[in-house]
Write a protein that binds this DNA or RNA. Sequence first.
DNA 1: GCAGGTAGTTGACTAAAGTCAATGATATGG
DNA 2: CCATATCATTGACTTTAGTCAACTACCTGC
Lengths: 296, 296
Amino acid sequence: MDDRLIQTFRVFQRTVTREVGALQENFLGRGRPYGVSRLLWEMGDGPVEVATLRERLGLDAGYASRLLRALEDEGLVTVSPSPDDARARVAERTEAGRAEAAELDARSDDTAAQMLAHLDEEERREVERAARTVTAALARRHLVIDVEAPDSADAWWCRDQYFAEIDAIFASGYDPAAAVQATDDDLTMPRGALLVARLHGQPVGCGAVKLPAEGPAHLKRMWVSPAARGLGLAATMLERLEAIARDAGATEVGLDTNSALVAATTLYESRGYAQVPRFNDETHADRWYLKRLEQR
Amino acid sequence: MDDRLIQTFRVFQRTVTREVGALQENFLGRGRPYGVSRLLWEMGDGPVEVATLRERLGLDAGYASRLLRALEDEGLVTVSPSPDDARARVAERTEAGRAEAAELDARSDDTAAQMLAHLDEEERREVERAARTVTAALARRHLVIDVEAPDSADAWWCRDQYFAEIDAIFASGYDPAAAVQATDDDLTMPRGALLVARLHGQPVGCGAVKLPAEGPAHLKRMWVSPAARGLGLAATMLERLEAIARDAGATEVGLDTNSALVAATTLYESRGYAQVPRFNDETHADRWYLKRLEQR
DNA sequence: GCAGGTAGTTGACTAAAGTCAATGATATGG
DNA sequence: CCATATCATTGACTTTAGTCAACTACCTGC
């Protein structure tokens, strides 16, 4: 491999470990041992199987148990038997735990802001772009996108996240019952497909396509977790979904969306989707797009 | 500050800590405790005062002493009394220590290469550029450039590094005695100036300008340590030196260099230096440049 | 040549990080 | 329902990281 790249990367590594590492220790040091803070920080909201958590962070069973106990004693998490398997346990942040995690996030952001404070407007834009590029390159190895059954646990989780997020964004909320429905069958081949994206094994995004017998294919549930934004994930999923539609013989892909989802509309427009008049009665939508698929 | 930048940076931080951190622990874990490896890795070749080392790595005196003892027991470093001050001690890698450090470097590069192996040519170029940008932004806070007396310890050190490096690059070596000399007076105001750049307090580069009463100012000893390349440091020093020359009334700056120093010639050319015929009898040079200074 | 300061070493200690095997509760396949 | 495997917890342990103060050797200014 190119020597100059390696040389650059070596300096990058040193600098970044130093800076970001210092930052990390700084904001995660809150009277608690580092390991304890890190666990609280990385576990995420929502219940997680302890085994999953352990594997994700690469912890020994005994050690993880103790760390969780410490958090439990502080009232920051609850650990309860898993509903599926009474041997296994699931951990979840309490209200206080969520608050503390938010505090850690805020501190992390503060220190990051400090680190970038001396840059002017243009430099910031450049650094932002550069940080995205590097992040995407590093994360790519751990990013996998798979066709998945719509009733899998991770598919459900992504859907719930998606609904919760647009519910928060739309002024009048989001009511799944009022929306144009897609059954599990609609998103299973041959009638459609659902993709789930995972980063380090954690679900971080989804996207689906319906393949009606007649007319354009229809995209649904395009969602990327905040934890994985800026990696070009949405664009990759879009390409995969279009490929699925093309392979199924579709000549067009359509979708409905809302102008409040700026990132989404920007993506669609940059990928050749043209705005068209309303073509379905989705109540939450105020924009409709269509794209011709090039046959290969 | 811009929220999107912070969001991007948050993801960047997580990814990079994870990746680069994993890398670090991976390659520094060689049967030795991490702290010991790190010390060996970061001490550099050449003798260092133990106090300097300690301060650079932020170590407690007792702790540092023990780490050095561990390395000494393994035969990787020698610790001997400082020639200047019999209380102080200087540490230096042994032959085996250098080999081990080289091994660590190689492993570090290997893992970095692995990390970037899945990228294609164009992506690599992009990542390289991006890594530079981020590194420069992060390092900038810790980078200071000062006018310095040419006989200061750090100025000497930089000069030695510079000579050693070009000696290694030039096919026929570099003989300071055969070169056009600059005395300490020549590089002290009002007859000239010497800049020393420091990253985290460590000298990482130098550059000097001679200001003869008549004719163009003359640049000398432009050098940037490998540890600080890609930060735009040379360009910054160049600007500072030109500003000094301009302030002293010079209307032109000239320099001699060698075409083997590709990075240098590229820099000069991109900064408006035009190649001119030989104008001095520097034996090591095969190129001469000149630039008109815009008066302000 | 002595007072006061500085550099590094050493012993004694603590906290954190991490490992391992035994244990008890629960699941699963036959 | 029994043998076997899995899951988390617990106790007992080791290693690593790091701190602090006492101490010795040495330097510097007066």
